[in-house]
């Protein structure tokens, strides 16, 4: 065991040296990210200069920006949910999960107008949802739980950041969204009807990179993952500080940040090792999710998921 660690360390050192070499050739790793409580550690790392020059965060407004970037090849990696990862893969770009940023435990929410008291009342209602995002999956799950089919509701495909506007214009009756949109809708009279805490360990927010990046720029990937865990450590250890910083960037009250943190699980290194293990939770959920998505016609072919998760880039410890 000790020996393997040592060997691993030497190999890692060698790889990182090689990776740095590759870095200078291929430039920094362009990593797509958008506002989400689970991705905040990366933002914190950027703000505290814990991300080396080998990683360049490309901040978008929603997951769609990141997905477009990955498909066009502009981005070498992105912070995505598991279903988004499956979508990209099914379109031919192989991805590797290098870290689990968070597991939704109530972060993804169905907010409805007060007259919708239970899930069954959704029938015939206009539901705002970013269909090709994680919300689409939650909606599928909700319909599953509610015993409704997709035709029983009117799905309004809308990027999450446009939900509050549509809500205030009363163009939708319900919204599948997440913070900070949830808080915005709640303050505008919305009520929580369902959230991801009812379907635990299903909605993963991941840090993924393309297979090409893993091969050509492993050092940058390692830097990225190390940066995420450094930010996470600050978040856990200096909660008092992090809350204000996250609140500042997301433009919400610090108290709301606290609430949002309550809706996600932020797995540490050990948990990441467990999730990303071969035949671990991420891979098994990916398989069942891709079957669901295939059945629903969201994707046209099921990816093979060979080498989906890779624990090689996780730091041995957070110093």
């Amino acid at each position: 065991m000790q020996r393997r660690d040592f060997l691993g360390l030497s190999i890692a050192t060698g790889l990182s040296v090689a990776g740095l070499g590759g870095c200078s050739k291929s430039g920094p790793l362009a990593f797509g990210i958008h506002p989400w409580i689970g991705y905040e550690p990366l933002y914190l790392a950027r703000d505290f200069d814990w991300l080396p020059a080998s990683v360049a965060l490309r901040s978008g407004t929603s997951a769609r920006d990141s997905m477009d970037g990955l498909l066009s090849g502009e981005l070498g990696g992105a912070a995505l949910t598991l279903d988004e990862t499956i979508r990209i893969w099914s379109q031919g770009t192989e991805l590797v999960v290098v870290a689990v940023a968070d597991v939704s435990a109530g972060a993804d929410v169905l907010v409805a107008r007060p007259h919708i008291a239970e899930l069954a009342d959704l029938r015939g209602q206009r539901v705002a949802v970013e269909l090709d995002g994680v919300s689409g999956i939650l909606l599928l799950k909700i319909l599953e739980v509610a015993g409704l089919s997709r035709d029983d509701i009117v799905a309004v495909d809308l990027p999450v950041n446009q939900h509050p506007e549509a809500w205030s214009r009363r163009e939708v009756d319900a919204s599948v969204c997440y913070e900070p949109t949830v808080s915005a809708l709640e303050s505008d009279g919305g009520l929580r009807l369902f959230d991801s805490s009812s379907i635990p360990e299903t909605i993963f927010d991941l840090l993924v990179v393309t297979r090409d990046t893993v091969d050509s720029n492993p050092g940058a990937v390692r830097d990225l993952v190390a940066g995420h865990f450094a930010g996470l450590r600050h978040m856990v250890r200096s909660m008092h500080d992090s809350i204000y910083r996250i609140a500042s960037r997301q433009g919400i009250q610090p108290g709301k940040v606290k609430n949002a943190l309550g809706t996600v699980m932020l797995p540490d290194l050990a948990a990441n090792q467990r999730y990303l293990a071969a035949s671990g939770r991420v891979e098994s959920v990916a398989r069942s999710l891709s079957r669901l998505m295939f059945d629903e016609g969201i994707i046209t072919n099921e990816p093979g998921f060979r080498g989906l998760c890779n624990t090689a880039f996780l730091p041995r410890r957070v110093s």
């Binding site: 200096s238 008092h240 500080d241 204000y244 910083r245 609140a247 500042s248 433009g251 919400i252 009250q253 610090p254 108290g255």
Partner: peptide, 16 residues
């Protein structure tokens, strides 16, 4: 530091 919701001027990160 520009920290939204924090009521005082501050030059450093925050502690309890």
């Amino acid at each position: 530091q520009a920290l939204a919701g924090f009521p005082y001027v501050v030059s450093t990160r925050l502690y309890p």
